[in-house]
Design a binder for these strands. Structure first.
Lengths: 148, 148
DNA sequence: CCTTACATTTAGAATTATTCCAAATGTTGA
DNA sequence: TCAACATTTGGAATAATTCTAAATGTAAGG
């Protein structure tokens, strides 16, 4: 892979970070690679454990910092299930998430929000019991308030 | 029994709870009324503060217990936004939620999951920047494992 | 180069939301 | 009434995340 890229600042990851005024550091690079390496929606804790394998000195605070940076600059998504730890996902395509209430697994559902409720095909054997849709943005009052 | 539901066990709330083997206690009744009283998606903490006004002895643990009971028996929904405190909603119709990133407000969007992405009308002035869809249920592997 | 300014990392403390616990109380049914 | 069980309570414990302050790294200007 791009382990051969000698100069961090040449990578596209660097460019994304730069758009938000963030630098590509070895830690951020490494956390990103960990995330892309195993796409199983790990928690910050799990990312931390994996990251330590290749970078033993990395700290938990840095992992949170890195994940946050990646999410903010659009290189990763943060998936929240119930009240449990956030999970992270480097798949930036427009997709949904399926949470298995039995094994706790999270699966990407490559359909995009629009497909829900229109008989989208889930992988074989998947059964949906609940659908939660949350929209984010700015509400009417806040938009009005802004126009002062 | 008289017209005004003086007897707890006569209420439909009681019936819902009973379906899950739960009793309707004065605390659960009160928490439910608090929830229905102001439909602004309060956190457990906010429910606690409101509940104390009419029932000063109620404890936080009980509020969590009651909210949990209501959610489990289908009398309330739990809304999770980011990593912040869960919020609770007694509107059981099939609806989405809109989270305003500026004021933190949560709004019910009465459309149902199917409408997302099909140009549903939001209230005037609302602007959506993200849509998160999460499906819950049982995945294929777990369904297979079950058939042993 | 050297300095200054600022970004990032680090370890650990602090915070927040939630869950757990054990004792007291309430309820139901034999 | 008694035994069995459910619920409530206050406080302790836990889990996830954020904060803090010091050390380190980096870029730019002189």
């Amino acid at each position: 892979m791009n382990g051969s890229s000698s100069n961090l600042s040449d990578s596209p990851v660097s460019a994304r970070l730069a758009m938000r005024g963030l630098r590509l550091t070895p830690q951020r690079q490494h956390v990103y690679e960990v995330l892309v390496g195993v796409r199983d929606h790990p928690t910050a804790e799990e990312v931390f454990l994996r990251a330590k394998q290749g970078m033993p000195e990395i700290s938990m605070a840095t992992v949170y910092n890195c994940l946050d940076a990646l999410v903010r600059c659009g290189l990763a998504k943060q998936v929240n299930v119930d009240r449990s730890a956030s999970r992270f996902c480097p798949n930036m395509s427009d997709h949904d998430h399926f949470y298995c209430e039995r094994c706790g697994g999270i699966y990407d559902i490559e359909n995009g929000a629009g497909a829900v409720g229109r008989g989208i095909e889930l992988p074989r054997g998947f059964e949906v019991t609940h659908v939660d849709v949350s929209l984010r943005g700015v509400c009417g009052s806040c938009n009005d308030a802004e126009k002062v």
